[in-house]
Design a protein around this nucleic acid. Sequence first.
DNA 1: GACGATTTAGACAAGACTGTCTAAATTTGT
DNA 2: ACAAATTTAGACAGTCTTGTCTAAATCGTC
Lengths: 232, 232
Amino acid sequence: MVFMRLGASPDTFRPRGHEAKRLSIVDAAAGVFCREGFAGANIDLIAAEAGVSRQTIYNHHGDKEKLFVAVVRDLTERCNAGIFATIATFPDQPNDLEVDLVGFAVRLNQNCICNRDGKFLRKLIQTEGERYPELFAEWREQGPGRTWPAIAARFARLAYGGYLDIEDPDVAARQFLGLVNAELQTTFMLGGTPRENEVLQSATNGVRTFLRAFGKRRTVAPVDKQSAIASA
Amino acid sequence: MVFMRLGASPDTFRPRGHEAKRLSIVDAAAGVFCREGFAGANIDLIAAEAGVSRQTIYNHHGDKEKLFVAVVRDLTERCNAGIFATIATFPDQPNDLEVDLVGFAVRLNQNCICNRDGKFLRKLIQTEGERYPELFAEWREQGPGRTWPAIAARFARLAYGGYLDIEDPDVAARQFLGLVNAELQTTFMLGGTPRENEVLQSATNGVRTFLRAFGKRRTVAPVDKQSAIASA
DNA sequence: GACGATTTAGACAAGACTGTCTAAATTTGT
DNA sequence: ACAAATTTAGACAGTCTTGTCTAAATCGTC
């Protein structure tokens, strides 16, 4: 993305302004599609928010529907990257299991679910999912279809390492997500963004219950997990 | 609703056909608003699906926005009634705690969340919630604001009766809902309706984890809760 | 069967939106 | 500074939608 000086095939790489405009169009379109829905989204408004003329949008994307598809693909890609980056921070060899899992849950929420991209993608899936079955089937495969098993694998490793007592890692992974988000459901429904301390609270409560259900009952006791009750 | 013979002020009560049309309009409008969104909803289409003429819709509701508000109010009212009716079936004196809680969770899902009204209301909240803050604030008060405490109270009673080991009934109630729906999230996102066995599976897994976390560890043992491991 | 209220079909004006087109202005690479 | 490509502003046709209006048809009740 940064090279392209070098004179390498100057007709393949478009000028920098071109890509910059493409990005600002897709960005603005994401916001407007989310706020107004596909039918209510106004191309002139998108153009104004992107700081380009309407014609430029048509030059780049052809028509409204193609623009919408581009928006969803972009969001899916970025969100997936964020989720996998966060999964890489999963505590495979936890020091303090409760604290580490809470940290993981908070990172997942803040970096992937509550951020701009996550919020927008979620809303577009909810509002337009039924209208573009194949597009969102693709999202389902690329998104939950790949991230959930990845999280499940991490929990399986944790169980194998003696930190947890889990029968079905897939079920445990889904329940982990359900628990740490249990208190944010209403906010998500209305399209709001929970505040940091709400996210932390929900994650803390969720992880605590998760460990009550799946934590080893002081049998192996991996390390020392005394000071795990630090709250805010 | 059934009386109105008796000649009591014949100009106050409209003919029966009138109310019937009002209902079929609101019904059809709910479906169209959900499928197409507020902006995409077409009054002519609503009229056609309701089996009335466009003018009748304007006679009844004035304009598109008022019709939308009427739809949301109707759905909220019906859903609330269903939820409270289901909460009334909560197992206060469980015979088999796992079986009884699974049954309650399944009833809640089938009668309140996965049925037509629940699905429609959820989608309207998600798609149009930001556009009508005061309308959905009202829903929030009437809906989650009243049903969640009601469920929490039932869990508190269960804890008081020695069936559960719960610190915060409100947290437990939210986590209960999060757990029993953990496996249905993706389906809900895309607006789909989970099949009966998926609902049962998710509820069973969720209740099992819930009881691993909050079930009494054979201390008081209220009655005989031996055969609580019966599965499907 | 007759009366009053409601509903219907269709026409209609006013406005909004998409997507195209053109000529001028701007940017980019050399 | 020059030439090519891109962007811009605006006009434009065509379509769609909302909400109103009117006259005829239908319904419910006595």
